[in-house]
Amino acid sequence: IGLGGVAALALPLQAAAMVDDKIAAFTGGADVGEGGLTLTAPEIAENGNTVPVEVSAPGAVSILLLAAGNPNPDVCTFNFGPLAGAQAASTRIRLARTQEVVAVAKMADGSFVRAAQEVKVTIGGCGG
């Protein structure tokens, strides 16, 4: 059995509200749709301290990445320049516990779309 990476057990009650606030700050309160943004993350993190996450939104200006279950949900914001070869990027992030990773993309026309994926952070199984 694992017993590795003992995660914070209690999710702060205000976390969900914090995520909404962060998104609102990014969108200026505009409506957020779906589609056109792909968020790729593993079903199970090999290591909660370094979880690979990829976002891709063709035509986006910027993409906000949030970890909904972290004490502070901020992760990063990608701003794509004129020479970006694709509006896509990968990085590695810290997840304190099993949670949803959320991305919001600002498109060139000023609209916003959202995508999310749950990532399981486990203290370990056993082997066959």
Binding site: L9, T122, I123, G125, G127, G128
Partner: peptide, 23 residues
Amino acid sequence: KVVLEDVADNIFNPDPYYQQGGD
């Protein structure tokens, strides 16, 4: 309890991609 729940989900999660193959 967290330990037992965690290990149990690594065996009995209905999605095989979450199963680690131990007991």
